[in-house]
């Protein structure tokens, strides 16, 4: 039961959404964009979030696109995680988002919602970091296409009133060998202790992580260590661990020490899975 009242808008177009946002905001109200809505509903129920109005983006056709267009894969922000997985358009992304929540929830959770999650995991981020993805953003100045890594810095950094329309990925990224690993405390359905996505491109491994630090990340320094063929696998992992961008998380899913142990295993698994494709 959500304790507070709010207004609900479901615009049919991008311009209508932007206009609605401005109109409501100018009335001094707190307005937020709404996609799958699962986090809005659950956080509002426990008084951890509130808004005077929500703008549901699911009615905007551009946000519902899921297709291959020339050299690009185009994924609308309001497409559900299950649709992405089932389409097999970008298999690594499909695998990564299949590890979010449970199957039924994934009919509701959208990729846009996952990228904007208030939790530290946001596993949809990992493949996008690996694939040098771009994102199409709507704002009052119009639409712009930006590099995902510029927009995502520990979290999505969109300006006020802006929202994510689409994710654009070069098609070639769908064909690289990949692996996606999620390790949990006990049950498969649960927050990750470690989540890892990796691809082999140009005989090099690219790896991105979630659950390890307080935000999802890809690290050039860690990749350099993992790709250092002068070192044994063990040493590469040891080096990579010494270059983590932030402290390893210590929480109720796992202690810092155990998480490190799980991360080492996951890295071994990833290097092993991609061993034919990397040097």
């Amino acid at each position: 039961m959500i304790p507070f009242d709010f207004e609900y808008y479901k615009p049919d177009s991008i311009t209508e959404a932007i206009q609605t946002f401005q109109d409501i905001e100018s009335q001094g109200k707190k307005v937020i964009y709404y996609s799958g809505g699962t986090e809005f509903i659950t956080f509002s129920r426990i008084n951890k979030l509130s808004a005077d109005a929500v703008i549901d983006l699911k009615g905007i056709p551009e946000c519902q696109v899921l297709e291959s267009l020339g050299d690009l894969l185009v994924i609308g922000s309001a497409v559900s995680l299950n649709k992405i997985a089932k389409s097999n358009l970008f298999p690594l992304l499909g695998q990564a988002v299949k590890q979010v929540a449970d199957h039924t929830s994934r009919n509701k959770i959208t990729i846009g919602g996952n990228l904007h999650s208030r939790l530290i995991y946001r596993e949809g981020v990992l493949p996008l970091l690996l694939a040098d993805a771009q994102v199409k953003i709507a704002g009052k100045e119009g639409e712009q296409v930006l590099a995902f890594e510029d927009v995502f810095q520990q979290e999505m950094k969109l300006g006020p009133g802006q929202f994510l329309i689409q994710i654009l990925v070069e098609k070639s990224y769908a064909s690289y060998q990949y692996i996606s690993i999620k390790k949990t405390k006990t049950s498969k359905v649960g927050y990750p202790v470690v989540s890892l996505a990796a691809i082999a491109k140009d005989s090099q491994i690219r790896a991105a992580f979630s659950g390890v630090c307080a935000y999802p990340f890809r690290s050039a320094q860690m990749e350099a260590a993992l790709n250092d063929s002068s070192l044994s696998i063990e040493k590469r992992i040891e080096q990579a661990l010494s270059r983590l961008p932030a402290p390893i998380v210590n929480d109720i899913q796992a202690s810092r020490e155990y998480r490190e142990f799980v991360l080492i295993n996951a890295l071994e698994d990833a290097l092993d899975a991609l061993k034919g494709a990397i040097s």
Binding site: K185, T186, S187, V189, Y191, I252
Partner: peptide, 25 residues
């Protein structure tokens, strides 16, 4: 195999939801 309440130093339950208080699925 998996159930227990987890308390912080102040005796506050850290896992009062089925998402974090996990039962076998």
């Amino acid at each position: 195999s998996s159930e227990a309440f987890l308390f912080d130093e102040g005796g506050i339950v850290q896992n009062p939801q089925l998402r974090t208080y996990q039962i076998i699925r």
